[in-house]
Design a protein around this nucleic acid. Sequence first.
DNA 1: CACTTGACCTGTCCGC
DNA 2: TGCGGACAGGTCAAGT
Length: 290
Amino acid sequence: MPELPEVETVKNGLSRLLKNKTVQSVTFDWPKGFPNSEADVNNFLIGASVINVERRGKSLIITLSSEYCLVIHLKMTGQLVFRGKEQFGAGHPNNSLIGPLPDRSTRVVLTFTDNSQLFFNDQRKFGWMRLLPEFEVANLDFMKKLGPEPLNNEFKNSEFRKRVRRRKNSSIKATILDQTVLAGVGNIYADESLWMAKIHPASLSGTLSDAKLNLLFKSIKEVFIKSISLGGSTDRNYVDAEGKKGSYLEFANVFRREGQLCPRCNTVIIKTRVATRGTHLCPKCQRKTK
DNA sequence: CACTTGACCTGTCCGC
DNA sequence: TGCGGACAGGTCAAGT
């Protein structure tokens, strides 16, 4: 669920909230989600302070003064929620899913020297938080394979088309969900951008024209930009770094809107299965291929 | 290499 | 009300 816009929103919050905080202590349960040696934690996490926070694809990278990084993937249900003086003083905002912390989904707690805390919650335990030397982050296998950032202007239409056509016999939905083709698209924005570009999600990637692929790329970027401006999508679990929900889904055109009318043509939106994922589409606007 | 499927997990919902 | 099963969807390993 946390896709590019959600991770970007978390990154923006953490950049502001964590900068210059110094880690005082760390607790975790679920070692699988925190696969770091005690020595590394003691030497390179505890006592280190936060230099900056970045996003690459759906991953977060927190760079520390120890020249180590915390690389974090929220997967489906991960949350990174910061609690400091202001967050306690203001109480829990109305648009929050989060109550008192830690809660039963809390996997890791970082406590800083000013007594503020960062909670890594993950109901389904798919997410992880790894401590690595800074220079090794770019050498991680999945980082090396990760496709370009769609919101980087250096990533041109021609490159997008080339990458999509590498997977000519896959459905276009499976192709844009593939993080090695481009970074950041997940199920919500795949459905939304394919609707916007009027492409059937099961169309084979190799059958789409230059014009259609250019439009799809433009649609992905537009959908991402709009969602970031709305704080992302909260379907079930997602919250930002202060525990607040995102509101993009209030404006979604097809995602989770089966049975409702397509805003473009008033045809009933259907839910089906493409690339083994729940898939929402307008059967009139989104015909196969071309 | 291209492509598909199953596994990793838990909470929720649906039908009986 | 309880209970089994389907479902949610990001990614990787293992399969064809």
